[in-house]
C-alpha cells in the first residue's frame, strides 16, 4: 500500500469511527436560545419605540444592537456566555451577541499580555475576518451599484 492510499484508507476508517454530535437536543437548544435572543432584541426595539416616540426606526435598531452587544460583553466578562455557548452553540454564535462575544473574549483572555499588545492587538483575532469580509464584500456590492448607476 503506498502512502496516499494509506492516508485515504485511514481517514475513511477514522471518519466512520468518530463520534458524532447528536442532532437532538443540540439543534433544538440552538433553535430556542437563538430565537429567544432575537425575541429579546425585538422586545427592546419595540420598547424603545414606545418610550421614545420620535425615535427613527433606524436609530431604534442601532440602539437595540448596542444594548444586545453590551449584554453579551457583560455576560462574557462574568464568564457566563461561554457556558451559554456550550449549551446552545449556533444559537449564541449567530446573533450579534456572538460577534460581541468574539471581540470581548480574546480581549479578556490576552489581558495578561498588557493593554496594548494584549487587549488591543488580540481584540480582533476572531472578529477581524468578519469585519474584513463584510466591508470588502459590501464595498464590492456598492461598486457594482455605482457601475450600474453610470449606465442607467
Amino acid at each position: 500500500m503506498n502512502e496516499n492510499e494509506r492516508v485515504k484508507a485511514y481517514n475513511k476508517y477514522v471518519n466512520a469511527k468518530i463520534p458524532k454530535t447528536r442532532p437532538f437536543p443540540t439543534l433544538f437548544n440552538s433553535f430556542w436560545v437563538g430565537g429567544l435572543i432575537c425575541l429579546i432584541g425585538q422586545g427592546i426595539n419595540d420598547l424603545l419605540l414606545y418610550l421614545v416616540p420620535n425615535l427613527s426606526e433606524q436609530a431604534a435598531w442601532a440602539y437595540t444592537l448596542i444594548i444586545l452587544i453590551f449584554i453579551a460583553a457583560f455576560l462574557t466578562g462574568i464568564g457566563v456566555y461561554d457556558k451559554l455557548g456550550k449549551f446552545a452553540g449556533g444559537g449564541t454564535i449567530v446573533p450579534i451577541t456572538g460577534f460581541s462575544n468574539s471581540i470581548t473574549s480574546p480581549s479578556i483572555e490576552y489581558k495578561s499580555e498588557g493593554i496594548i499588545y494584549g487587549i488591543c492587538v488580540k481584540m480582533f483575532t476572531i472578529a477581524g475576518p468578519i469585519i474584513v469580509f463584510g466591508v470588502v464584500s459590501s464595498a464590492f456590492v456598492g461598486l457594482i451599484y455605482y457601475i450600474i448607476g453610470l449606465f442607467m
Partner: peptide, 12 residues
Amino acid sequence: FLIGGFICMIGE
C-alpha cells in the same frame, strides 16, 4: 422567534 431560531439552527 421562529425565523431567528431557524437561522441559528442552520448555523448549528
